[in-house]
Design a protein around this nucleic acid. Structure first.
Lengths: 145, 145
DNA sequence: ATATAGTATACTTAAATAGTATAGATTAAT
DNA sequence: ATTAATCTATACTATTTAAGTATACTATAT
């Protein structure tokens, strides 16, 4: 039960885009510097995000990436589900046939409940929430100086 | 974000032991048959469980494994934490030094909250709860026939 | 004694993860 | 038109982790 690097980086990437929403395309080279993630890896992560329609791109010089929708409308559940490549803690949830005891399994019930709880939480958190927190944290930091 | 087979099997194994609590040592060959998990793999999983003091063993003929404590006193949080080998969704929670932005990271906060929520839930569920559910499910199944 | 069970350690295989490399397609700016 | 900045597509590689097996013990009830 560990979050993949893809999800972690993807989350930071998307919050970065949220912080620059409505400011034109953001270049990967900038995000790479700010987030300390290689451009090449960011490109990898952006493929599914683009396919899912969460980001749009502008090609050519001065091009870059932008959120496809307002930050209020993109939840962490969408990002995590997409980048983890599944919405379950346990494979038998999606494919009951892989385990002969799926129908009687007590522990499967528990993993299902847990998964549901996790995604309920993630659905309640939007990119706008995280961007807001990031802005506040940054202000606090400046005041401290 | 996926539960390891070790945790899944470990959970089933411990519920199996809970269902036979106070009935003397349970042999791996029996558990292996009931749960359809190889004896060798069960042995692997039992090493940490024994080290942690959650099970005790009786060696020799008629030997086997038993819960060290009543099922009411063993929670799923203990089992999952032990068998996953960590109590965090994200390595920077345990080792902030691996990421330079640990102190400003907004997403880290989120992963911490999520982890806390998950383990709160797992702490609320004991082996007794699951054994009880298993007994009920089994009765229902019999009535259906 | 002996067979039954757990113990310890090490090995093997397969899959997933995390990333890099290379070559190409678009397009704004000149 | 050319160029340089950017994204795109595909494929490769190395590392780690997961999952499971094998071999050789040790303890003990009968």
């Amino acid at each position: 039960m560990k979050l993949s690097t893809r999800s972690r980086y993807g989350a930071r990437l998307m919050v970065d885009l949220a912080l620059h929403y409505n400011q034109g395309p953001v270049q990967l080279s900038e995000i790479s510097k700010r987030q300390d993630i290689s451009v090449k890896y960011l490109e990898q992560i952006l493929i599914p995000l683009k396919k899912a329609g969460y980001v749009v791109t502008v090609r050519g010089p001065k091009g870059g990436y932008m959120l496809a929708d307002p930050p209020e409308e993109i939840t962490m559940a969408q990002i995590v589900e997409l980048l983890e490549g599944r919405r379950n803690l346990v494979a038998c949830m999606a494919n009951p046939e892989i385990c002969s005891r799926s129908d009687v399994c007590i522990t499967k019930n528990l993993w299902e409940e847990l998964t549901e709880m996790i995604y309920e939480k993630l659905e309640s958190i939007t990119l706008a929430d995280l961007a807001e927190k990031a802005r506040r944290k940054d202000e606090n930091r400046k005041e401290m100086e």
